[in-house]
């Protein structure tokens, strides 16, 4: 049988996603029951580009399951810098580890790794392509905060053009009934045509696009803020102008529902003012915590499936 990792969230059925969220919730409630589940197992974190947050989340997840961690945190400090192929690195690592989490600047690298080894490979972000555990984290956070992931109005704000976390979230949320989307962005950073055509229109999901966060704030159940990244722009002036167009402040948050929740994949630059952090609706630091729990559930699932 082919070893199954997680390269793209589309590989998971909705039932599997729901089960992962159930296990993650149980881990939150009963961490001691899971403290030795992965005793004697090793996770290798192969990070070809630095992403401290994601790497620490994976490593903490494995440690909290009683397992161990090996790996590298950027390509410079490893044999990779000598030009070793992804496939060879993965094969070597598979001699030591039981499961791999791989981050790579090139799209498809984790799939290449999975095709080369028979231990599970988790895609921890491949360029601007997939980052399934971020999407699982987002779903799990919505579930934890609001109790359900269906029948919600999801607002996505900021860079909707290049922001892969938004594209993945929209695709994943569109599996659930009664979900509507509100896309808030400047014209230059609108949600791409292929997401509208292949996901939203294809599934008959209703959505609106607007440039005004204020207008739509009262109807949102979730506000998903994103970072406008400097590297997406050729021109510094454009970057600064667009970066500053949608900044969430206490003032802007006022008309929002009491139980609305603000999510952000972090790190933020300045798109959420620090004053918002103390508002109970700000869920982004709890989101980080949830990321560890859902990764624990995923590691458990993949290790038990491939045992």
């Amino acid at each position: 049988m082919k070893t199954r990792g997680l390269i793209d969230i589309a590989e998971l059925t909705t039932q599997e996603i729901d089960e992962l969220m159930l296990v993650a919730s149980d881990i939150v409630e009963n961490p001691e029951r899971y403290a030795e589940k992965c005793k004697g197992k090793k996770l290798a974190t192969l990070f070809y580009e630095a992403s401290t947050r994601t790497r620490l989340s994976f490593e903490s997840a494995m440690l909290d399951l009683g397992g161990n961690v090996i790996g590298f945190s950027d390509a410079q400090s490893s044999s990779v810098s000598k030009g070793e192929s992804v496939s060879d690195t993965a094969r070597t690592v598979a001699c030591f580890a039981d499961i791999i989490a791989m981050r790579h600047p090139k799209e498809g690298a984790p799939l290449v790794a999975q095709m080369s080894v028979n231990i599970p490979v988790i895609n921890a972000g491949d360029g601007g392509h997939n980052h399934p555990t971020q999407t699982l984290t987002d779903l799990f956070t919505i579930k934890r905060e609001l109790g359900h992931v269906d029948h919600l109005v999801i607002g996505c704000c900021g860079d909707l053009k290049f922001g892969r976390t938004v594209h993945s979230l929209v695709t994943a949320m569109s599996r659930y009934p009664g979900v509507r989307f509100v896309f808030i962005s400047p014209d230059e950073l609108r949600i791409p045509e292929h997401i509208r055509a292949e996901v939203l229109d294809a599934k008959g999901i209703s959505y609106v696009e607007t440039t005004s966060l204020d207008d739509v704030m009262p109807e949102l159940d979730i506000l998903y803020m994103t970072r406008v990244q400097r590297e997406r722009f050729f021109n510094e002036a454009d970057y600064l102008r667009l970066r500053d167009s949608y900044i969430l402040t206490q003032e802007k948050l006022k008309p929002a529902k009491e139980d609305m929740r603000v999510l952000h994949p972090l790190p933020r630059v300045n798109e959420i003012s620090i004053a918002v952090d103390s508002d109970p609706r700000a869920a982004y630091f709890r989101q980080v915590k949830n990321g560890k729990f859902i990764r624990m559930a995923l590691i458990l699932k993949l290790l038990s499936e491939n045992a």
């Binding site: 192929s85 992804v86 496939s87 790579h104 600047p105 090139k106 799209e107 498809g108 690298a109 799939l111 290449v112 491949d126 360029g127 601007g128 392509h129």
Partner: peptide, 13 residues
């Protein structure tokens, strides 16, 4: 043709 694709930097693939 995607310059960000892993095939762009691994000639053997």
């Amino acid at each position: 043709k995607n310059p960000r694709c892993i095939t762009s930097c691994e000639q053997e693939l």
